[in-house]
Simulated scan of single mutants.
Amino acid sequence: MYNTDIPTRAELPSSAQLLRSTAIAIVAAAGILVTIVLPAEYAIDPTGVGRMLKLTEMGEIKTQLAAEAEADRLKDSQTTPAQAPATPSPDQRSSLFGTVLAGLFVSPANAGERLLLAQAPASRTDETVITLKPTEGVEYKLTMKAGAKVDFAWTARDGVVNYDMHGTPGAGAKEKSYKNGRGSAGEQGVLTAEFDGSHGWFWRNRGSKDVTITLKTTGAYGEIKRMM
């Protein structure tokens, strides 16, 4: 049986070689950070490489949508702190009836959302129509359990919108963005929940006239509701 020979001292890398390799790795990591990560995530592009690769535009969309969503949430919480929930449509009342009864036996804090998550139907279908005035933004979310999937398709009529598809684990938790875009007339695909919570879309009309968004959803979710 043959074992590999132990390398001699001369074959081992010297301290200078190790330092040089470490320095090269640090420089490479810094280069990736400056040319790729910062432009794509934060729209910070000191070298101009990110804009050449169209990464800076991606970062601008992310930061703009995040800032707009946060500004709308703050405005909504300051102007309408006690806003009453919207009355459910007739076709939603029957599915929510069991949830309301069960809510009588659950702690009031977050009871509705927890029950909707626990009793989410195997599948449901909704069509939601939203009209956005110029500069207006709106957010709609689905209550979903981790791993649940929803087929969706939305279209913008009479214009285009900026959007961000994201999920929120719970009150006060940090949102996770799944996909975003600017100047879009519509998107379709499958929304997969990475965790229990609310998942959906934020749209902003940056045009000069009203835009009507039609959202169609089919899949495993407890409810669909307007957040702002």
Score class of each variant (00 low, 15 high):
142 L>M: 15
126 D>F: 03
154 W>M: 07
160 V>Q: 09
143 T>V: 15
191 L>F: 05
156 A>D: 10
169 P>L: 10
188 Q>W: 06
175 E>T: 13
135 T>E: 14
191 L>C: 01
128 T>W: 12
215 L>H: 03
214 T>H: 03
206 R>F: 09
157 R>G: 04
185 A>Q: 08
199 H>P: 00
170 G>A: 13
212 T>E: 14
155 T>M: 05
207 G>K: 04
184 S>P: 03
195 F>N: 06
167 G>E: 11
129 V>M: 10
184 S>I: 12
152 F>K: 01
209 K>P: 02
189 G>P: 01
148 A>Y: 00
126 D>I: 07
199 H>N: 11
222 G>P: 04
162 N>T: 12
197 G>H: 02
150 V>K: 00
179 K>S: 11
180 N>H: 14
160 V>N: 07
200 G>C: 04
166 H>E: 11
193 A>R: 00
153 A>Y: 01
171 A>L: 08
154 W>L: 07
218 T>E: 15
203 W>C: 05
150 V>E: 00
221 Y>D: 01
146 A>H: 07
151 D>H: 01
148 A>C: 02
190 V>Q: 05
217 T>N: 12
138 V>H: 11
172 G>N: 09
132 L>C: 12
125 T>E: 14
125 T>G: 08
200 G>D: 09
144 M>R: 00
160 V>M: 11
127 E>F: 04
151 D>Y: 00
176 K>R: 15
192 T>Y: 01
123 S>L: 08
218 T>N: 15
172 G>V: 07
170 G>H: 09
176 K>S: 15
166 H>V: 10
142 L>E: 09
174 K>V: 12
147 G>P: 03
156 A>C: 06
192 T>G: 03
203 W>P: 08
201 W>T: 02
141 K>C: 06
209 K>T: 14
211 V>T: 08
157 R>H: 10
157 R>N: 10
134 P>K: 12
133 K>D: 14
133 K>P: 04
192 T>S: 04
127 E>Y: 05
172 G>K: 06
137 G>V: 10
188 Q>P: 01
129 V>K: 13
157 R>Y: 01
177 S>F: 03
184 S>M: 12
138 V>T: 14
156 A>W: 04
154 W>E: 09
153 A>L: 09
150 V>N: 02
220 A>P: 00
215 L>N: 06
125 T>D: 11
132 L>N: 07
212 T>Y: 07
177 S>T: 15
219 G>L: 03
128 T>G: 05
179 K>W: 02
163 Y>L: 10
217 T>Y: 00
195 F>Q: 13
171 A>I: 07
204 R>C: 04
198 S>A: 14
172 G>P: 03
212 T>L: 09
170 G>V: 10
123 S>N: 09
196 D>P: 00
137 G>Y: 07
156 A>T: 12
